[in-house]
């Protein structure tokens, strides 16, 4: 059976729906997508204030925001936020780097693909969270095991995206490169790299989404700092507002980092002839 966590790769689907912060869209006169979340928020706030929702289970959105504000004021928030970001960042860089090297190799060289890909596909089918006990046993409960777990999550989408991207490079364009006597590194830089970027960016964004999912798993299972720790702490101490605050922060951070990658991808792929680009800025 395929790893269920990997099936859920669209990053937006991995995260709980943000109760606030609708995605800002450029050049859209009226953000229609914000209407429903805002209406639900208003309903939720009203129901919570009238006491229709039990405050010990589902506190009002204003209380959740108040909790975040209080955490920020006391300065307690920043180590949690910083550490979670650092873990995701380190795991993303580590997993992304290994995936880039192996994906490029297996995409480019059929021999390497025949040798390595079956093994990697096999490993991919292990539900990644099954590694947790082993990683903790090997690397202890501190940062190394967490970063490695996140890196494993990031690895597969990036690896698969890049490998299929390299394999999908148009033979005819490679021939144009050969016709103008490009070889080796110049051919990679001027033809393979740009041709591969779209698939690579899809892989990176999916990988980042899984990175955020895996940091939650890693921090729930053993941490004394981080947003995942706040989740557990809120549960232990019976404070749902802390749990919801943490969920909201995960949503905002996940969305922000994904938007950064999406922005970079749009900038680098302005040349693409796709449906979505036909709406975007021309040149």
């Amino acid at each position: 059976m395929p790893n269920a966590t990997l099936v859920l790769t669209p990053p937006a689907a991995l995260r709980p729906a943000p109760p606030a912060a609708p995605r800002p869209r450029r050049r859209r006169p009226w953000p229609l997508g914000a209407a429903l979340p805002l209406a639900l928020l208003a309903l939720w706030e009203t129901l919570a204030r009238t006491g229709a929702l039990p405050p010990n289970l589902l506190p009002a959105p204003s209380r959740v925001l108040g909790t975040i504000a209080a955490l920020a004021r006391t300065g307690e928030l920043w180590p949690h936020l910083g550490l979670t970001l650092a873990r995701v960042g380190a795991g993303f860089v580590l997993g992304g780097a290994v995936a880039t090297a192996l994906g490029a190799l297996t995409g480019y060289a059929p021999l390497a693909r025949r040798l390595l890909d079956p093994l990697l596909q096999g490993v991919r089918n292990i539900p990644s969270l099954a590694w947790v006990p082993l990683f903790i046993l090997w690397m202890g409960i501190y940062e190394t095991s967490k970063v490695v777990l996140i890196a494993v999550g990031v690895f597969f989408p990036v690896y698969l995206g890049l490998m299929s991207g390299v394999q999908g490079v148009d033979r005819k364009l490679v021939e144009v490169g050969r016709m103008y006597r490009l070889s080796g590194l110049a051919l990679v830089r001027r033809v393979f790299l740009p041709a591969t970027l779209p698939a690579y960016f899809v892989g990176l964004r999916n990988g980042l989404g899984l990175g955020w999912m895996f940091v939650v798993a890693a921090e729930i299972m053993g941490a004394n700092k981080g947003l995942g720790f706040l989740l557990v702490d809120g549960q232990m101490t019976g404070r749902p507002q802390t749990i919801l605050a943490s969920i909201l922060l995960f949503a905002v951070l996940g969305q922000a980092t994904d938007a950064a990658l999406a922005w970079l991808s749009r900038r680098l792929l302005r040349w693409q002839d796709t449906y979505s680009m036909s709406e975007g800025p021309g040149e």
């Binding site: 364009l173 001027r190 740009p194």
Partner: peptide, 11 residues
């Protein structure tokens, strides 16, 4: 060499 298709590099 001019190919049957333009084969311009889209990027």
């Amino acid at each position: 060499f001019v190919f049957q298709e333009p084969r311009l590099l889209p990027w």
